[in-house]
Nucleic acid binder design. Structure first.
Lengths: 158, 158
DNA sequence: TTCATTGCAAAGCGTTTGCAGTCAC
DNA sequence: GTGACTGCAAACGCTTTGCAATGAA
């Protein structure tokens, strides 16, 4: 059932992608469909290297350059979202599928001790952010397309 | 008056830094004081390259390596904050002095047209973020040390 | 004197680019 | 057939690291 759902979603996303490519006169390359399929099979955040290794270890032969290119298209098409976790240490960009999800924010939990290592990333969604967004739009006469909110913390020690 | 204030603040920050270095058994190098002085003379966000060029063109001879090292200390001491503007294109990390300011968030305004260029960065402070923070702390049993909130948008076209 | 810190240059690492070959159209 | 796309390797840009020289304690 869950699996069926996933397959259905993948089919839908491929259709959306097809439409998008068509509209812009871009080509239907097999790589693009393979990559979007792998992304929508994942349930977590991933970075380019993750995705590259995953695809190498599976059926496909893709290059990182193609993944980078393709991801740019998916971002523009609204099929994925980009994140920069790790305010403390430098990390590669992370991505996640976004077509069926509502926008959500992230709580980044660091391990105790000054090692600056991420323990866990929790997603949440607080409607109050909408109120802030609207206030900012009014205050500065802008249209806000997008936001990112991260909380950084650690497990409460008892 | 403004200038006097700035000089007074710089004196205070140097004192704070001195204390911090002392507490950790770190050394009072002239570079560290020169760098913190230049940072607190700035009124805007800056990146390492900005700061490096500024200092080269002024009295001091510093290396980027030292600036990177030093900035790490200042971050830990709470004297500066680190930002990653530019969700769309890759940018270097930005920093800003933080000792006298209250925590604030940022509205990143992009130029119109798909050129992904930043037009302006506006700072704001909405108290409602505190409410969200507390809700998250309760919901997930964490202590939040820190947050970052960015809105990304564009000027409203009439 | 000692060893943290500096400056320099080299290395790292994620990402982008150039280009010859390929393949969607 | 044409030119957008791919894969590869090289280039890029920011940041980190290794190391000999320096200088704060």
């Amino acid at each position: 059932m869950d699996r069926n759902n996933k397959e259905k979603n993948i089919a839908i996303v491929k259709e959306v992608l097809k439409q998008y490519l068509q509209d812009r006169g871009l080509r239907n390359t097999p790589e693009r469909y393979a990559i979007i399929e792998e992304i929508y099979n994942l349930d977590h955040h991933f970075n380019v290297d993750d995705l590259y290794l995953l695809m190498i270890h599976k059926k496909y032969q893709v290059s990182k350059a193609t993944i980078y290119n393709t991801i740019e298209i998916f971002l523009d098409a609204g099929l994925i979202r980009k994140h920069q976790f790790g305010e403390k240490t430098l990390t590669s960009s992370s991505y996640e599928k976004s077509y069926f999800d509502k926008q959500h924010d992230h709580l980044v939990i660091y391990k105790d001790g000054g090692d600056k290592e991420i323990e866990e990333i929790i997603e949440f969604c607080d409607p109050r952010i909408q109120g802030i967004k609207e206030a900012i739009e009014d205050a500065f006469g802008v249209e806000i397309d997008n936001h990112s909110l991260y909380f950084y913390g650690h497990k409460k020690s008892k």
